[in-house]
């Protein structure tokens, strides 16, 4: 069975209703803001490199305006926010991103003699494949455990992407409609505010 698809517009519509508490609405609505973002932590070139990397991990060809994750990462690093722990084998987060993104560029140069952002998508994917397999060339990987870097990158991006209301809509999650509570909780029991998959 292929993964289901859910109808568009359900979460956006829900957020306008009184099925959502004020606190939850206040958390979600700002994430729909698509106004341009100027990086605060990364320099311009590194920021574009991060965007290009994110675009391979979360390719969104079907979206006119893809969900942007680079601003979320940049803001976190600018503020210095932490999730409460770090692998002891890893340098502090800012250094890890500098080294890791640099390492991805080194791998791009070594494999295709061009910076990552200038490669076609298929070659970018080959570079990412090498990072995922832990085989990417580049001197930065001498200082940074490549497997932990990739794991941390995936985890942070997953938390950012699936916090976005439209990504939650994509997977059919409507837990943000939190005023009424749930009474139909058994398998295959849905409530009116839970969208059914598109047949």
């Amino acid at each position: 069975m292929a993964s289901p698809h859910y109808p568009e517009g359900t979460v956006r519509a829900l957020l306008q209703t009184d099925l959502v508490t004020e606190a939850t609405r206040a958390a979600l609505l700002p994430r729909l803001d698509t106004s341009p973002y100027t990086p605060q932590f990364f320099d311009g070139a590194t920021y574009e490199l991060l965007r290009a990397v994110v675009a391979r991990i979360y390719p969104q060809p079907e979206r006119v305006e893809p969900i942007e994750l680079a601003p979320v990462v940049d803001k976190r690093l600018a503020v210095g926010d932490s999730d409460g722990w770090r692998y002891d084998a890893m340098p502090p987060d800012r250094e890890a991103y500098r080294l890791g993104l640099g390492g991805i560029n080194q791998a791009a140069q070594a494999l295709f003699q061009q910076p990552f952002v200038q490669l076609p998508e298929s070659q970018q994917d080959q570079v990412m494949e090498a990072v995922a397999n832990g085989t990417a060339p580049g001197e930065n990987w001498q200082q940074l455990p490549i497997d932990r870097f990739f794991e941390e990158l995936l985890a942070e991006l997953a938390e950012d992407y699936y916090s976005h209301p439209l990504a939650q809509e994509e997977i059919g999650y409507v837990g943000m409609a939190d005023v009424p509570g749930w009474t139909h909780i058994e398998p295959n029991q849905l409530e009116p505010r839970e969208p059914e998959a598109v047949k």
């Binding site: 508490t21 939850t24 958390a27 932490s82 999730d83 409460g84 939190d178």
Partner: peptide, 18 residues
Amino acid sequence: ATDEKAQHFLFWNDERLS
């Protein structure tokens, strides 16, 4: 909020080394 990210304040986020 019924939102995992917004509830970040609930956790001890001073960094620990694992």
